[in-house]
Lab assay of single mutants.
Amino acid sequence: MEVRTIKVFTTVDNINLHTQVVDMSMTYGQQFGPTYLDGADVTKIKPHNSHEGKTFYVLPNDDTLRVEAFEYYHTTDPSFLGRYMSALNHTKKWKYPQVNGLTSIKWADNNCYLATALLTLQQIELKFNPPALQDAYYRARAGEAANFCALILAYCNKTVGELGDVRETMSYLFQHANLDSCKRVLNVVCKTCGQQQTTLKGVEAVMYMGTLSYEQFKKGVQIPCTCGKQATKYLVQQESPFVMMSAPPAQYELKHGTFTCASEYTGNYQCGHYKHITSKETLYCIDGALLTKSSEYKGPITDVFYKENSYTTTIK
């Protein structure tokens, strides 16, 4: 009895394709271990004539594949690729409408935090270190965002349907971005203890939790000093293409032309909904596939993004 075979390709990165001759009487799992086709788990399936010449994702289970996976995804987590594939199996079914010149995501599976993050990423200057993220990001900007969303979920250790947080998501993504040249110098002034300067680099240099107003941050924000008295913390120097200011959701007025974009969060910790506000020729609110415009805006804002380049204080 002759062994019926077909020729397929296996890959971990969709760049390096490895030619395989597979036995049609055995499952993919018996031949390769966990195997995925377009995100779908085909591990328990036997090869079919229609699979001839198709590319299958496999887990990096030998040295060659491990090197290829690390170079593309910059992670050695053995569960990463499987999590990416199972997320992709959902995100490829989502709709990605162009809204006001940006790629958004039609609401499904509690994905409003991903839509808000995706919209924000198209408006701030950011370059990702893992080629996987950078490639998928370019495709997302062009309207094909399924891979990018699935990668975000995998890097953030999230599953489809789980509630997510924009600030946490951005923080994970910033860790995989090139923020080497970003720098922030802060000064804390206390009447009792004097003053202390701190220099922050990388992710810490672009994120701040405690106030939404970048102007206020430049002037000074009140913080408790270690001595128990009130101290003032203010920005001395900022070198970065953008800054992200966050605070627990509270009524906040966004003035046209003073910011790049913002995240609105309605609801409580267990259950809520994100919308995205962007400042173009007027203010726009993007909620999944829905767009509304207004000249002014007041609502429960939790993150505001500002364009920056270089700032030095005039406070002496």
Rank of each mutant, 00 (worst) to 15 (best):
Q123V: 06
T232S: 05
G164W: 03
P248K: 07
I45E: 14
V203Q: 04
V166Y: 10
T266E: 12
K54Q: 12
L126Y: 00
Q197D: 03
K46T: 12
L290M: 13
K106H: 12
Q216L: 07
L65Y: 07
L65C: 10
V12Q: 06
F148C: 05
L121Y: 04
Y155I: 03
A177M: 06
S246R: 05
E296M: 04
M26P: 08
Y265H: 01
P60G: 06
C190Q: 01
A177C: 15
Q123C: 07
K255M: 09
L59N: 14
V99L: 13
N110K: 06
S181G: 14
T10D: 07
G272Q: 03
M26C: 14
R139H: 10
T11Y: 03
F128N: 05
S181Y: 09
R83P: 04
C285P: 02
T211N: 08
L212C: 11
Q237S: 12
P248Y: 04
A146W: 09
F259K: 02
M170F: 07
T75H: 04
V99F: 14
S181V: 04
K307M: 08
G257F: 03
G161M: 02
M207K: 06
G161R: 07
A140G: 06
Y138H: 13
V67I: 13
S181A: 15
L126M: 05
Y269E: 15
C227P: 00
Y265S: 01
Y155K: 03
H176E: 00
F242Y: 00
N129A: 11
T75Y: 04
A136L: 04
T10N: 09
E308G: 05
P78C: 09
W94I: 03
Q222W: 03
E281M: 03
K7R: 14
Y284W: 11
G82C: 14
T120I: 15
A250V: 14
Y306F: 10
S246H: 04
K127V: 08
D135S: 10
K7T: 13
G267W: 15
T64P: 11
F242K: 01
T11F: 06
N111D: 09
T192C: 09
C156E: 01
L126Q: 06
K54N: 15
K218G: 02
N49D: 14
I105C: 07
D303M: 01
L283Y: 01
V166E: 03
Y57P: 02
G82I: 14
T314F: 13
L179F: 08
I15V: 15
P249R: 05
Y214S: 01
C261H: 04
H74L: 13
Y28N: 07
V58L: 08
S213K: 01
T169K: 04
K298T: 13
M26N: 13
L283D: 00
H276P: 00
S171R: 15
E204K: 14
T169R: 03
F174V: 03
W94A: 06
T211W: 03
S240W: 03
Y137P: 07
L163M: 10
F148N: 01
L200R: 05
Q197W: 05
A132I: 02
V243D: 03
K93C: 13
H48W: 14
E215P: 00
A69Y: 14
G53R: 10
V8C: 11
A140M: 12
L88V: 08
N100I: 12
K201Q: 14
C156N: 11
Q270K: 12
A146I: 01
T116R: 00
Y274Q: 00
E2Y: 10
N100E: 14
Q270G: 12
E68V: 08
I15L: 12
K95V: 15
K255D: 07
Y73W: 02
R4N: 13
C190T: 04
A140R: 03
T282I: 07
L102Q: 05
Y113M: 06
V188M: 09
M170T: 03
T282P: 03
H90T: 11
S25W: 02
Q251F: 14
G143D: 05
F148T: 00
S310N: 10
K95R: 08
T192W: 06
Q175P: 09
T258E: 14
R167P: 00
A177V: 07
V22F: 05
Y57T: 12
R184A: 09
T312V: 11
T5M: 14
N157I: 06
I6S: 08
Q30G: 08
M207S: 00
G164V: 07
K218F: 01
P130E: 06
T35G: 09
Q30T: 12
K275E: 01
I15A: 06
Q230M: 15
G143A: 02
G288C: 04
G288S: 04
Q175T: 08
I286R: 00
L102K: 08
D41Y: 07
N309M: 08
G202W: 02
H276R: 01
S25F: 08
I152M: 12
Y113G: 01
G33I: 07
I6F: 12
S246V: 00
I15N: 03
Y84Q: 04
Q30M: 13
C190F: 01
K233Y: 07
G29P: 08
Y311W: 09
K219P: 03
L17D: 10
C182V: 07
E162P: 01
D109C: 06
A150E: 06
V8N: 05
L121K: 01
G210D: 00
E239T: 10
S294F: 15
T5V: 12
S279P: 06
V189W: 07
P34V: 14
L17I: 09
K158Y: 00
T226A: 14
E296G: 08
Y28V: 02
F128R: 04
Y138G: 12
A150H: 04
H74T: 14
I315A: 15
Y137K: 01
T55S: 12
K106N: 00
L290G: 11
K219L: 10
A140T: 09
L126H: 00
C225Y: 00
L235W: 15
G267H: 15
T55V: 11
V67N: 15
T258C: 05
H90D: 09
Q222V: 11
V67K: 14
G267A: 15
V166P: 06
H256Q: 14
Y57V: 12
Y73Q: 06
Q222M: 12
Y306A: 02
E239W: 04
L102Y: 10
G228A: 04
E215K: 02
K106S: 14
Q230K: 10
G29V: 07
S50R: 12
I152W: 00
L126P: 07
D77H: 09
F174E: 04
Q197C: 07
P47S: 05
S279Y: 00
C182D: 07
A289F: 04
K191S: 14
S246A: 03
T76D: 13
A154G: 01
K54V: 14
A108S: 09
F174I: 03
E168Q: 15
G299Q: 08
P241Y: 01
T35Q: 07
Y234V: 08
T55C: 10
I315P: 15
L114C: 01
P47H: 08
F242A: 05
F148Q: 04
F56M: 08
A146T: 01
S171G: 10
K218T: 01
V188Y: 05
K106D: 11
Q216M: 08
S86I: 06
A87Y: 03
I277R: 03
